[in-house]
Write a protein that binds this DNA or RNA. Structure first.
Lengths: 191, 191
DNA sequence: TTATATAGCTAATTATCATAGTTTTGAGGT
DNA sequence: ACCTCAAAACTATGATAATTAGCTATATAA
């Protein structure tokens, strides 16, 4: 019964590792305990429930993505910023599929911390859109389109939805190009 | 032990009802048995496994969506066809959230029947894009963008991702307008 | 009327998350 | 060096899930 020296942080790091390598749905208490070398009930000395752990992944996912995207869009604007945002998001999802999946969980189950982290990301995206002159309600509608198309593309790609042989990288660049083109047109509201 | 008169079709109809009203993740053998008035193991006289039932929902989902979208785009082209495709898809997802979720399951687990039904839908979408003059690889990239943005929007909407007060219908129309605009531009390849 | 295929049953297996209550241990104070 | 005690890990237990094995009753067709 030698102590394993566990700690909330150690448990969460293991959770991230499992979610990223085997998928968020494979993150179970049993697997977590196995990886950490303890029996399942021991984990409850450090965590409240598996759902809480998953919610923490949601928060961590948004924060890590925010961190990466902030760096990527720093100092650029317009099309370059849009590309930076898109590519950093797609790359994040490939590097951390488990964390990405956690950020896409239904909002209903989110904690305040997750909500706040997601809001911070939203603010960053809004800043990118300001480079296209979008403000007010138009900016909200535009950002919903941006979020939707990026999320949909990434989920489809990770879910094996793009089975045809055509290069998916080219498809993603097409998406960014189309978004850029459409945003430019919106820029000048129907005068 | 009076017989309940079950039948694969009856079971699948019940599965669709449960998935649509309580969510695909709430579709369990126990709930299915409860609804049908039998004990859980009895269901295995009609189904092979819960996964098979879910895959059948995937197939049925694609077929029903195909049916609706085919009607919607019949006789129209260009922007009208794009709108019809988009709106029929979004409405389908609202009417049948469980079937919609089933169509968005990871492709890896799909049966040939599901794959075939999804391919038929892809063909319909390709036909819509032909109205924009898209052919060959360009059409494939364009269709990936279309699928991604529609799927992302619908999943976000169903998942409660659009929390702000702005009208989501307007956002969806914005999406369609942006897609239309971008597709029109693509129409004339860089001459 | 009787035979038989089969629908539905009970019981059991395995895997999941979670809690209650017990034992052990290691760090800090003496 | 030696206690003390909070915390860490454990055993045991229970609830819910999917699934299988094997029994029994029943509807239908000969």
């Amino acid at each position: 019964m030698a102590r394993a020296g566990l700690d909330l942080d150690v448990v969460l790091q293991a959770a991230i590792m499992i979610a990223d390598s085997e998928g968020l749905e494979s993150l179970t208490i049993a697997k977590l305990a196995l990886v950490l070398g303890v029996k399942a009930p021991s984990l409850y000395n450090h965590i409240r429930s598996l759902d809480m752990v998953k919610d923490d992944l949601t928060t961590q996912g948004w924060l890590l993505l925010l961190d990466r995207s902030r760096d990527a869009v720093a100092g650029v604007a317009g099309r370059d910023a849009l590309d930076a945002l898109g590519h950093s998001q797609r790359q994040f999802a490939k590097d951390h599929p488990g964390l990405w999946a956690a950020t896409q969980l239904p909002v209903a189950g989110w904690s305040d911390a997750s909500q706040k982290a997601a809001d911070a990301y939203l603010a960053l995206a809004l800043a990118v859109l300001r480079g296209y002159g979008a403000t007010g309600d138009a900016a909200i509608h535009a950002i919903r389109v941006l979020r939707a198309s990026l999320r949909g593309f990434i989920d489809l790609e990770l879910g094996g939805g793009y089975g045809l042989p055509q290069d998916v990288d080219v498809s993603f660049c097409t998406l960014l190009k189309m978004l850029d083109a459409a945003l430019r047109l919106q820029e000048t509201p129907t005068l």
